[in-house]
Design a protein around this nucleic acid. Structure first.
Length: 428
RNA sequence: GUGGACGUAGCUCAGCUGGUAGAGCUCAGGAUUGUGACUCCUGCGGUCGAGGGUUCGAAUCCCUUCGUCCACCCCA
């Protein structure tokens, strides 16, 4: 045990009982994307480091201390992607699919951040991301929020999450506001804690996020971004809230909601829950109208969000709908050497006839008792038994494992019997 | 990066102020020539996370290190 190799810290294997839940949730997500006519895009896991520095922001925690960065053999600095938006925009610009047109895209896959692991936070984690390009108005903001809302509905989580929303205004308005904020906090610098003092000039808006109880009064008294909004952003936000009202989406405006990535402007939102410990954000997103241009494309408005799959799946496991476990319908036991070839032939025939059938065939021999034990443990509803007697007589024994009488069937009647009992589509 | 708790069989855990490692589950076999889930019996399975120190003697005490969990920070 001493010399075994372990997985990298914060990077976890996902094992069979759990992969079933992942597949279920991923399936629902794909259906959701199709329901809104979004198209899948797949990007590399590795990009030039500069892409993330330029988009996420040089002074963010992600870029400063959380990226997996290494040197390629030719000396280029590469990084494992810490999030998907930057890569998606890069790919879109590189292939011209954002130029002068609308695009609705999604992707799903692993992301990497070198943080201290914690509940709901891992160094390799998975996100599904949605990005909509080329639409200026609040209607698309509302659309992506509706997508998320529908997902909670479909997974039985509607009562477990709530929407918080805010607007950051335009980059220009934010710059003005930022100056007011720095002035305010600088005036009260003696009341700032060490962290906030550190943030004062580097990233002052993050001070508003402080959870330090001693600073709540100071933060409450700070100038509000809402009072410094440019007219267009104000109207955009009002328009979005009106849409959400009209569509029956509940939300809470949270003036202190500031996203950690630099590229956001105007709308930002988070879906949060109380059931995930300290990492309560399941879904986060917003508008990033400047990013496409910043990464070398023609100015293109954009909005999107990302959902953390580990967080989503743990929420579903504890508070959402049951996910199917993927057990076989049927376990075929084979007694004796003479039954092996015959049994596999039978199994192949059943799989031909019943494409939806999940059939596990006994391998590795064993007596009746051992095979019945395996059948039970597999979770199958039925055992099929093929021994020397059955082979000789052209028959198969079907034994219900969860109650009911065992029956002896003609070999060519098995498919129909299973189709009926399991309510499967038959091809024959 | 900081702090707290914890690492003993494949899994869940017990093991007192130091005396040389146990249970349950799982798995294999049997009681039951070809019938699982209940019961009983037998068996397989451990350099006690790793390395060092103290000691006649360390799973137990000390140091270091790796890892897990949780929180801070930050975020999905």
């Amino acid at each position: 045990m001493a010399k075994t190799v372990q997985s990298i810290r914060g990077m976890h294997d996902i094992l069979p009982p759990e992969t079933a839940a992942w597949q279920f949730v991923e399936g629902r997500l794909r259906e959701l994307m199709e329901a809104y006519a979004y198209h899948e895009i797949r990007m590399p896991l590795v990009e030039q480091t500069g892409l993330f520095a330029r988009s996420i922001g040089e002074v963010t925690d992600i870029v400063e201390k959380e990226m997996y960065t290494f040197e390629d053999r030719n000396g280029d600095s590469l990084s494992l992607r810490p999030e998907g938006t930057a890569s998606c925009v890069r790919a879109g610009v590189e292939h011209g699919i954002l130029h002068n047109q609308q695009q609705r895209l999604w992707y799903m896959g692993p992301m990497f951040r070198h943080e201290r692991p914690q509940k709901g936070r891992y160094r390799q984690f998975h996100q599904i991301g949605v990005e909509a390009f080329g639409m200026t108005g609040p209607d698309v903001d509302a659309e992506i929020i509706l997508m998320a809302a529908r997902l909670w509905q479909r997974l039985g989580l509607a009562d477990e999450v709530r929407l918080e929303i805010n607007t950051l205004g335009s980059a220009e308005a934010r710059a003005v506001y930022r100056r007011h904020l720095v002035d305010y906090f600088a005036y009260h610098e003696s009341q700032l804690d060490d962290e906030s003092r550190e943030r004062l000039h580097r990233n002052p808006m993050r001070i508003l996020d402080s959870k330090n109880p001693d600073m709540q009064d100071l933060v409450e008294g700070a100038p509000r971004l809402a009072d410094h909004l440019d007219t267009e952003s104000r109207e955009h936000f009002d328009g979005l809230l009106a849409l959400l009202d009209a569509l029956g989406v509940d939300y809470r405006v949270n003036h202190r909601l500031v996203r950690g990535l630099d590229y956001y402007n105007r709308t930002v939102f988070e879906w949060v829950t109380d059931h995930l410990g300290a990492q309560g954000t399941v879904c986060a997103g917003g508008r990033y109208d400047g990013l496409v241009r910043q990464l070398g494309g023609r100015a293109t408005p954009a909005a999107g969000f990302a959902i953390g799959l580990e967080r989503l799946i743990s929420l579903v496991a504890e508070h959402g709908f049951d996910t199917p476990a993927g057990e076989p319908h049927c376990y075929l036991g084979l007694l004796g050497e003479e039954a092996v070839a015959s049994g596999h032939r039978l199994a192949e025939g059943l799989r031909d006839a019943l494409p939806g059938l999940r059939l596990q065939v006994n391998c590795g021999g064993g007596g009746m008792k051992a095979q019945m034990k395996r059948a039970d443990k597999s979770g199958a509803e039925f055992a099929l038994i093929l021994g020397a007697d059955e082979v000789r007589e052209g028959r198969v024994t079907l034994k219900p494992l969860r109650g009911g009488e065992q029956v002896n069937l003609a070999r060519d009647a098995v498919a129909n019997e299973l189709a009926t009992r399991l309510q499967l589509e038959s091809k024959a």
